[in-house]
Amino acid sequence: MTAIADTATLTGRSLRHILRSPDTIITTVMMPVAFLLLFVYVLGGAIDVGTDSYVTYLLPGILVITIASSVSYTAFRLFTDLQGGIFERFQSLPITRSGPLWAHVLTSLVATAVSLVLVIGVALLMGFRPQASVLDWLAVAGILSLLTLALTWLAVIPGLTASTPDGASAFAYPLILLPFVSSAFVPTASMPGPVRWFAENQPVTAIVDALRDLLAGNAPGSAIWVALAWCVGILVVGYVVATALHRRRSA
C-alpha cells in the first residue's frame, strides 16, 4: 500500500526532527522528573499513602503527566508545519490526505514511549520496585499507548486551530494539572466531599489505579475497565473532531 509507505516516509521525517532536537524529549521529561523528586524527597515524608514506597505509589500519576507533557509537543510540531506551509505542500501532493496527520500521531507515540521509558528509569533509580509480571507490563504498555493515542488526537485539535505556538501547547496545562485532583498523589479518601467526588469520577483516578495495581502485580479491579472506557471515549472524540477540523480546512 502506497498510503502506508507515504505515511512511513512522513513519519521518518518528523522523527528526524526529534533526533535533531532531542531537547524536546529532555523538556518533556523534565517536569515529570521534577515532580517525582519534589514529591518523593520533599513532600513525600508528610504524605501517608499506606505503602512503604511512595515512589511506587506516585509513578502512575507521573506517567500520565509525562504523556500530557509529551503530546503538547505534538500540537506544537503540527502547528509549526501548518505555519511554515510544508503541510500545504504535503496536502497538494498525490498522497493520502490524512497521511501528514497520521505521521504526527505516530511520531507522538514514539516520542512519548521514549519519554516514558526515561521517566520509569529515573523512578527505578529512586527505588521504584515493580512486582509486575511480563503480562502485567504488557497491560501497562497497552494502557499507556492507548492513553497516548487518545491524548495525541486531542492534541491535534489545538495543533490545527491555534493561532500562536503557545496556544498550541497550552492545552496540555489542564491535562498536567488533572492528576493533582485524582488518586495520583494522595488517596482520594483524604479529600473533602465535592473534591473527592470529582477526583473519584475523573479519568486520571481510574487510569492511575489500574496502572498501580498492575505495577504492584495485583489483579486490577474494575478500575481497568473504567480506565479503558475513558481512553477509548477520549480517543473517539479527539479523532472525530480532529479529522473534521482537518477536512474543514479546505472548505
Partner: peptide
C-alpha cells in the same frame, strides 16, 4: 505541483533531505 507564496521547505532537514522526501512521496 504548487509553490506557495511562502517557501514551504523543512527548515530542520538539509536541502538534499527535503528533495529526497518529496521524491519519495512522488
Amino acid at each position: 505541483s504548487l509553490t506557495g507564496q511562502f517557501a514551504a521547505v523543512d527548515e530542520v532537514l538539509t536541502g538534499r533531505e527535503n528533495l529526497v522526501l518529496v521524491a519519495r512521496l512522488r
